Amino acid sequence: MKILAIDDQKLVLIPLQIRLKELGYEIVTETSALKGIELFNSFEPDLVILDINMQETSGIDVIKYIRQKRKSDIPIMILSGNTDENIISEAFDLGVNDYLKKPLSLRELCSRTKRLIGAPKSRNIKKSYDYVLIQKRCVGVVIPCYNEEKRLLNKRFTDFIIKNSGYHLCFVNDGSTDKTLEVLSKLRKGREDFITVYDCEKNGGKAEAVRLGMLHMAKQEDLDYIGFLDADLSTNLTDFDDLVCTIETSKFKIVSGSRISRMGAKITSAGARKIISVIINFIIRKILKMEFKDTQCGAKIFRKDVIDIAFKEKFVTKWIFDVEIFKRIVLHYGLKKAKEIVCEKPLKRWIHVGGSKLSMKDSFRIFFQLVQIARTYRKNKTIKISNNFPFY
C-alpha cells in the first residue's frame, strides 16, 4: 500500500514517514504542493495525506486536481492546523475522507490510515515514533554553548525532539576550549533533520553566539517561530513550549519568559545572583525607561518578521543584549506598537543551575554596559517605555 504525504514543513513529514514505513507502508513525501501533484501522477498512491496551508498553492487546489481533473476517488486525508469551518466544509464537499486537526498524536494518524486503506501484513514493528505529537507549527531553538560538554550530555534534549515533531534545535558552539563540539557532533548524529551545529571558531560571547544562530535559523523557510534558550535548561523545553503556545495564539511578535515569583511557580536562584538581578533590573528601568519585570531571562521566542530588526546588527554589549533587543523593537515600531507586540510570560519553573559562565565580576560590569547602551542609542529619539506591557 502506497502513501503520498504533502506538507511544506519538513519537520512534520519526517516522523510521519518513519512511522508509516515502520508499519509496512510504502511512503513518499514532498514539501512542494506542485511537485506533489507530479508525484501523484507517477507514484499512483493508495492514500494522499495533505496539508491545507502551503506556500506555493493550497491543499484545496490539490484536492480539486485529484477529484475534478483526474476524477480519482482514492482516499484523501487532511492533516492541517487550519480550523476554519468554511475550509473544512469545502474540503469535505470536494470529497476528502478525513480531516485531522494539528496538533495530534502520530498514533491517531496511523490508526486512521489503517481505517482508510487497511493495514500492511504484520511485521516486527518498532515503537520509536509511537508517541510523537505532530504540531501545527515548526519552531527553531538557538542554544548558545561555551564549554558545555557536561551539560549537553543531558538526555532531555533528545527526548524532547523525539516526542515533539516540529522542533529544530540549533546549538551554537561559541569557540569552546573543551569537548563541546565533539559532544554536539555526537548529539547530532542520526538526528540531522532536527539538530544543527553552528560552529564559531573563536569565542565571541553569548550575545554574538545567539545573534549568529538566530540569523542562521531565520533562513529556514519551514520554521514559523525562532527563539533562544540557555544550554543549562534552567528553563526546560516543555516550559519553552508554553512560550511558543502564547505567541502562536496571539498577535504578539515577541514573547519573553519571566522569572518573577508567583503562586504555583517554582522559581529558584542563588541568593547573591538574585540580589544582583534585582539591582540590575532596577537600573535597567531607570536608565533605559523600560519597565520589564525581567529582561534577562534566557528564554524568548520571536516571529520571523522581527528577527532582522532585532538581530541584524551586532550588539554593543556582551551580556545584556536582551535589553538591546527590546530597545531596537521600540525604536523601530514606536512605543505604542511595541506595547502591542511584546509581552512577558511568567515561567512555571526556573531553576538556577551551577556553573554559570557569568561571574560576580561580570555582574558588576553590567552597570557600565547599561551606560554604553544608553549612549549608543541616544542618537535616536529618547523613548520612555511605561510599565503596561502585556503580562501573562
Rank of each mutant, 00 (worst) to 15 (best):
K114Y: 14
K114R: 15
L116G: 01
I117V: 10
I117K: 01
G118M: 07
G118P: 05
A119E: 15
A119M: 09
K121W: 13
K121F: 14
I125C: 03
I125W: 11
S128D: 12
S128H: 09
Y129H: 11
D130N: 10
V132P: 07
V132T: 11
V132S: 06
V132L: 01
L133F: 09
L133M: 12
L133W: 05
L133T: 15
I134E: 01
I134L: 14
Q135I: 05
K136Y: 11
V139W: 03
G140S: 05
V142F: 00
I143A: 03
I143S: 08
P144I: 04
C145Q: 05
C145S: 03
Y146W: 11
K150R: 13
K150G: 05
K150A: 10
R151Y: 05
L153K: 15
L153R: 15
K155Y: 07
K155A: 11
K155H: 11
F157R: 05
T158K: 09
I162C: 09
I162P: 01
N164I: 01
N164Y: 02
N164R: 05
S165A: 15
S165F: 06
G166E: 02
H168Q: 10
C170G: 02
F171I: 08
V172G: 03
N173Y: 01
N173K: 05
N173G: 05
D174H: 02
D174S: 04
S176W: 02
S176P: 00
T177A: 04
D178V: 06
L181M: 10
L181C: 06
L181T: 07
V183R: 08
V183C: 07
V183M: 01
L184K: 08
K186E: 08
R188E: 01
K189N: 12
K189S: 11
R191Y: 14
R191F: 12
E192M: 11
D193A: 13
F194N: 08
I195R: 00
T196P: 00
T196L: 04
V197W: 11
D199T: 02
C200L: 14
E201I: 13
K202W: 08
N203P: 02
G205V: 02
G205S: 00
A207M: 06
A207I: 04
L212W: 00
G213V: 08
G213P: 01
M214R: 04
H216G: 06
M217L: 12
A218I: 02
A218F: 03
A218K: 14
K219R: 15
Q220C: 12
Q220E: 14
E221V: 15
L223M: 12
D224I: 03
Y225I: 04
Y225W: 07
I226R: 10
I226M: 09
I226T: 04
G227C: 02
G227S: 05
F228I: 12
L229C: 07
L229R: 04
D230N: 13
S234E: 06
T235H: 00
N236F: 04
N236P: 10
N236H: 10
D239Q: 13
D241F: 09
L243S: 04
V244N: 06
T246M: 14
T246C: 14
T246Y: 13
T246F: 12
E248N: 15
E248F: 10
S250M: 11
S250F: 13
K251V: 11
F252K: 03
F252M: 07
